[in-house]
């Protein structure tokens, strides 16, 4: 029985500030989902014309071709420094530093910690997929113990290379950050929570509340050598136990 007579309303479609073109990400990659959530936030906050998006080296280095705002590339690990330079010049613009785990926790650790410690009024979106995706699946600072990668073929050995680093907990020791949360995009429930968190970290900047950080556990089927669905499950089974989801800090500004 069809409802030809009923009216039809479009209730879900591509966000306006997400460029309508195919993306280069692998099937099942979390970047595509996160791009949607970010552009939904940009649309809702009506800030497309005042946003500057920084894409450092990593799978998402081409993200400025998908997000319809002013874009800027950063050398590997240096996005928080580039963001600092941009924000110090344009205090009224929304600067978004969108980084992967190698970028933020390996080569860019110093920039990550010091931009956060200075309390730069920027938004950092940290996509943690526990691997170097763009270069073909090497071990990242967030690769789990015994996780097999191209550069830990026998499984990550903590005795040799240490345990994975928890970014939220690390930044939570600093005074200045106003918002620190870890989410995931491996199922609809988690995605909806991530959507709220992304809107919050962007809105905090719009309202000048301060440095806001969201870490997002994200699938990398190709890098992990799994099907997309298996990668979704692996986040639940392996990543979330080590990287507990939740909010670590939520300072409301005194003047809001």
């Amino acid at each position: 029985m069809r409802n030809e007579d009923a009216d039809v309303k479009l209730v879900y479609s591509m966000p306006e500030s997400l460029v309508d073109r195919p993306n280069h990400y692998c099937p099942g990659c979390g970047h595509g989902i996160i791009h949607k959530l970010l552009t939904q936030a940009i649309d809702e906050l009506e800030i497309r014309e005042k946003t500057i998006f920084i894409a450092p080296v990593g799978c998402s280095v081409l993200a400025y071709f998908y997000i319809d705002v002013d874009g800027c590339e950063a050398a590997h690990g240096r996005a928080p420094a580039v963001a600092t330079g941009l924000k110090r010049v344009h205090k009224d613009k929304v600067i978004i530093s969108y980084q992967g785990d190698g970028d933020l926790l390996a080569i860019g650790t110093a920039e990550t910690i010091h931009a956060a410690n200075r309390g730069e009024n920027i938004t950092v979106i940290f996509v943690n997929n526990a691997i170097y995706g763009m270069t073909g699946g090497q071990m990242a600072p967030t690769s789990l113990a015994s996780q097999k990668t191209k550069t830990s073929p026998y499984g990550r050995d903590p005795a040799d290379v240490g345990q994975p680093i928890r970014a939220c907990e690390l930044l939570n020791t600093l005074e200045a950050p106003v918002f620190i949360e870890r989410c995931a995009v491996n199922n609809v429930k988690n995605i909806l929570k991530t959507r709220k968190a992304i809107k919050k970290v962007v809105q905090n900047q719009v309202l000048n509340i301060g440095y806001s950080f969201v870490e997002i556990l994200s699938m990398c089927p190709t890098g992990w050598g799994m099907t997309p669905q298996r990668a979704v499950e692996w986040i639940d089974e392996a990543m979330i136990p080590y990287y507990p989801l939740g909010n670590f800090r939520k300072k409301e500004s005194d003047h809001v």
């Binding site: 007579d5 039809v8 309303k9 209730v11 879900y12 990659c29 989902i33 199922n187």
Partner: peptide, 16 residues
């Protein structure tokens, strides 16, 4: 919501 490639749009039937 979960589609990484924005390949799915959703319509809802609204009573006329």
């Amino acid at each position: 919501i979960i589609c990484p490639d924005s390949a799915i749009r959703i319509w809802r039937y609204v009573a006329v």
